[in-house]
């Protein structure tokens, strides 16, 4: 048999080889930051349950410059996640729905909802200051 098909190995750093893959890994990396941030929030809940001192200490920690940097990085990745999530959502929707509604309305509807909900969250949070 003269055949000797050559199988190229998948390079360990395949995700660095192409912009599409780099962006994919960036998108996926958001989960690590979001997970850590969620654990931070869970910790905050425990502190909230523990009493005012613990809560205030946790709140002070949130203002720590390192923590702010971490929060902002998480925020950036969350935005990337949010936009890609909205872009992909119509393509996960059942084909019947997708054809009836159209990709852009699904995507924009989702993004619109995201904006409204987040404004409500910030508004609710801010109400303590004005009250």
């Amino acid at each position: 048999m003269s055949r000797r098909p050559y199988v190229r190995p998948m390079p360990g750093n395949w995700f660095m080889k192409h912009p599409a893959y780099r962006f994919y890994m960036l998108r996926e990396s958001s989960c690590v930051f979001n997970l850590l941030y969620c654990i931070n929030l869970l910790n905050g809940l425990f502190k909230l349950a523990a009493g005012p001192d613990a809560w205030n200490a946790w709140m002070t920690m949130q203002g720590n410059p390192l923590m702010v940097v971490f929060a902002l990085v998480t925020l950036g990745l969350t935005l990337i996640h949010t936009i890609t999530f909205a872009n992909m959502a119509p393509r996960v929707a059942p084909q019947q729905v997708r054809k009836a509604v159209g990709d852009m309305p699904i995507r924009n509807g989702l993004l619109g909802g995201v904006v409204v909900v987040n404004i409500v969250i910030i508004a609710l949070a801010a109400m303590g200051g004005t009250a």
Partner: peptide, 15 residues
């Protein structure tokens, strides 16, 4: 994450 996280992070950074 898309629906809640941005608002939560911003709130905790600014307030």
């Amino acid at each position: 994450i898309a629906f809640f996280m941005t608002g939560i992070i911003l709130s905790l950074v600014f307030f």
